[in-house]
Design a protein around this nucleic acid. Structure first.
Lengths: 172, 172
DNA sequence: ACTAATTGTTTTAAGCTTAAAACATTGTCT
DNA sequence: AGACAATGTTTTAAGCTTAAAACAATTAGT
């Protein structure tokens, strides 16, 4: 999109002013890293397997679950809306990667499972996925990886604490 | 969505197996943190200002630029497609937050600028935005913030190096 | 000046996403 | 059993996003 090689993707940092606080700078750098990785993964999924990340996420959930899974459970595990799952499963079923059939116990429920084709497709893609992510982080030392891992845990805890505090205030 | 308070949002970590490599674990934790922050910001933008993050990003770009900006320049700075900007500006113009008029020099070009209403709206939202992000990171010490900032810089460099290497291979 | 290529924008088609409404089925209560 | 609440899924309406095609206007080359 832009010439030069290093700014084809979202890079929110380019707009940060020096007077911005450290929090905004960390947030924008976090966003930049996530977008770079995310975009790269999506691009390679498209190029090498002609699929998308949401489809891949569904196959991954089905693969690690023993036996078929209901639409609702898929929706909970992926943390997306029910309607979203309906659409994705429609397309995956159309491509023959998953199988959807009504539950014999409860006629409201649709049970979904991987087809053989779906399982095979997933295992190929998952292998690639692991390699891609590894390559992108190849320049970080084990110490750096551990440090990042721990700091992200601290950040996650801080965010959740802030949300809890906020929801308590809202409940008053 | 799920009871318990800590897993209402995307949390890819819940599915990671112990045999997964460190790279995948870091990636999923990165994704979790970004999604938590991103979702929170979007939710609050919706609740407090009835707007969205893409709209906010456009107002921010227009605010820091002196004078009107073309559609193409906006598209480059936000790192999104031209068509995307067209749609967003359509809606922002409909809400009276931005002004769009043809350039006098080049009749292909549309020049966009903030209206008074848009500038006022942006400054209110930006103030809140800074506070939200600060609150979410409140539990991290200055040292931790600096450490995270530096490690993310290392990660960004590693990703870009991997992309460059990959595109060089593709060009052979 | 005519033709070509280039540049700037919009339109189109497809997919992802959500919230809210609509439907279908099951469970509960009397 | 009948009414009503709760649960599981799909549909609908709206917005974000992209790639590719279509349009419009400018620039370059002859």
């Amino acid at each position: 999109m832009v010439e030069g090689g290093h700014f084809e993707r979202k890079d929110y940092e380019s707009g940060v002013q020096t007077q911005d606080g450290m929090e905004l700078r960390v947030w924008l750098r976090l966003l930049t890293c996530t977008n770079l990785l995310d975009t790269e993964v999506r691009t390679r999924l498209k190029q090498t397997a002609d699929t998308t990340l949401p489809r891949f996420d569904i196959l991954a959930q089905l693969e690690r679950h023993v036996g078929p899974m209901s639409m609702g459970e898929l929706s909970k595990r992926l943390m997306v809306s029910n309607g979203n799952v309906t659409g994705l499963i429609d397309r995956l079923a159309g491509e023959g990667l998953v199988d959807r059939k009504p539950s014999p116990n409860d006629r409201r429920v649709q049970m979904v499972s991987l087809t053989k084709k779906g399982a095979k497709s997933f295992s190929n893609i998952a292998e690639n996925h692991r390699t891609w992510v590894g390559d992108m982080m190849a320049d970080l030392s084990p110490d750096e990886m551990n440090g990042l891992y721990e700091l992200l845990a601290r950040l996650k805890a801080s965010i959740l604490a802030a949300e809890d505090k906020n929801s308590l205030e809202a409940a008053e």
